[in-house]
C-alpha cells in the first residue's frame, strides 16, 4: 500500500541521479580528457589512431558521442582496461567485485557492531571520562589517513611480530596460496567458497585471519562515523519530551534508553550507514594496495599508475552506482523504521 508507493517514488527519484552520474563520467572521459587514450597504449602505432577514432565514433559531434557512450554502457561495453592487457572492463569488474564487497561487508559489520554501542555509551555518559575517550577515539577515526593507518598496522601486527618470531597476522592477500594451492574461486567470496564449495574449515579460518587487518582498517573510519552520528542523535533524542514521558511512566533507565530512545536515534544513524558505504569504497582504493588485496581498489590504483582511463572511468561509474544503490536501500530501511515517513 503506502509503503509500496514510497518505495516506487524513491526508486524513480534515483533514476535522474543515475543519468547524471553517467553524464559526468562521459563528460570527464570525452570532454575534459581525450577519449582516444582509452583505446590505445604506448605500443599502438600512430598510423592506427585515426582508424580507432573512427571505429569508436570519436569523430562524431558530442551529442552523438554521448549516445554512443550510453548505448555501449547499456550493452555491457565499458571499454578495455589497458593495464589489464586489454581485458574488457566489465570482465575485470566481475572478477574483482566479490573481493572488495566481501572486505567492505566485513568492515561494515565490524563498524556497526562496535559503533552503535560506543555511540550509546558516549551519549548516555556525556561529559564523563568515557565520553571524552570515545569522542577522541571516533574523531581520530575520521581524521586518520587510512593508508597510513594500514601501513602502521601492518608494520606492527605483521612485520614486527614476525621478526620477533611471535604469532602474527598475515600481511596481505586473501588466503595463504602456498598452503591452499588447490583452491579455486567459485563465487569469488572466499568465506562462502571455502565452506560451501571447498568444504575446508582451515581455509575458512585462514581467510578470516587474512580479513582481520584490512577489515579493521577499513571499518575504523566507518565505525567512527557511526559512533559520532549515534552519539549526537542519541543526545538529541534524550532531550525529547517523549523520553521524559517514558521516565514518568516508571520505566527503568535501561528500558528508556534501549527501547524508547534507541529506536528513534537509529533512524538518522541508518542514513549515515548508507553514506559510509562511499567511505568504504574510498578506503578500499587506499588500503587494498597495501594489503595486496586483489579487489577493485587495487585495480584502480594500478590503473592510475599506468594511465588506464577506461578502467578509472568504469571504476568511478561502478562506485557511484553502488553508492546510489546503497543509499536507496538505506532509504527503504529508513521507511520501515520511521512510521512518519512510511505513511507520509
Amino acid at each position: 500500500m503506502r509503503l509500496r508507493d514510497f518505495i516506487i517514488r524513491r526508486i524513480l527519484l534515483a533514476i535522474p541521479v543515475v543519468f547524471g552520474v553517467l553524464t559526468i563520467t562521459w563528460f570527464l572521459s570525452h570532454m575534459v580528457g581525450d577519449p582516444v587514450v582509452m583505446y590505445i597504449n604506448t605500443n599502438t602505432p600512430a598510423s592506427a589512431i585515426p582508424g580507432i577514432i573512427r571505429s569508436h565514433g570519436l569523430d562524431q559531434p558530442p551529442h552523438i558521442q554521448y549516445f554512443i557512450y550510453l548505448n555501449n554502457l547499456f550493452h555491457g561495453d565499458w571499454g578495455e582496461s589497458t593495464s589489464m592487457s586489454f581485458r574488457p572492463v566489465t570482465e575485470v569488474i566481475a572478477q574483482r567485485f566479490p573481493a572488495t564487497i566481501e572486505l567492505a561487508l566485513v568492515a561494515m559489520v565490524f563498524a556497526v557492531l562496535l559503533g552503535i554501542p560506543l555511540g550509546i555509551i558516549s551519549a548516555t555518559r556525556k561529559d564523563q571520562m568515557i565520553d571524552h575517550f570515545t569522542r577522541i577515539f571516533s574523531l581520530a577515526g575520521v581524521s586518520m589517513p587510512i593508508f597510513w593507518f594500514a601501513i602502521m598496522l601492518k608494520y606492527v601486527l605483521y612485520y614486527q611480530l614476525a621478526i620477533m618470531g611471535l604469532p602474527h597476522l598475515p600481511g596481505g592477500y586473501r588466503y595463504d596460496s602456498n598452503r591452499f594451492y588447490w583452491f579455486q574461486y567459485t563465487t569469488g567470496f572466499i568465506l562462502i567458497d571455502s565452506l560451501v564449495y571447498a568444504h575446508s574449515i582451515p581455509l575458512f579460518v585462514d581467510a578470516l585471519t587474512h580479513l582481520v587487518m584490512p577489515g579493521f582498517c577499513l571499518g575504523y573510519l566507518t565505525m567512527a562515523i557511526i559512533t559520532r552520528m549515534m552519539r549526537s542523535s542519541m543526545l538529541e533524542v534524550l532531550r525529547e519530551d517523549y523520553i521524559t514521558l517514558a521516565r514518568a511512566k516508571g520505566l527503568s533507565e535501561k528500558v528508556v534508553i534501549y527501547r524508547h530512545a534507541l529506536r528513534n536515534a537509529l533512524i538518522p544513524t541508518v542514513t549515515v550507514i548508507g553514506l559510509a558505504f562511499g567511505g568504504l569504497m574510498t578506503g578500499a582504493v587506499l588500503t587494498e594496495t597495501i594489503f595486496q588485496w586483489h579487489g577493485l581498489g587495487q585495480w584502480a590504483v594500478s590503473a592510475i599508475l599506468s594511465a588506464d582511463l577506461a578502467a578509472i572511468n568504469g571504476f568511478t561509474l561502478l562506485v557511484a552506482l553502488i553508492f546510489v544503490t546503497a543509499n536507496l536501500i538505506v532509504d527503504l530501511v529508513y521507511g520501515t523504521l520511521d512510521p512518519r515517513i512510511r505513511f507520509g
Partner: peptide, 17 residues
Amino acid sequence: VFFAFPGLILAMAIVMA
C-alpha cells in the same frame, strides 16, 4: 549527482581526465 560520488573517487576521475 555530485553527492552520488564519494569525494576521493570523483576527484580521482577528474585528475585523471
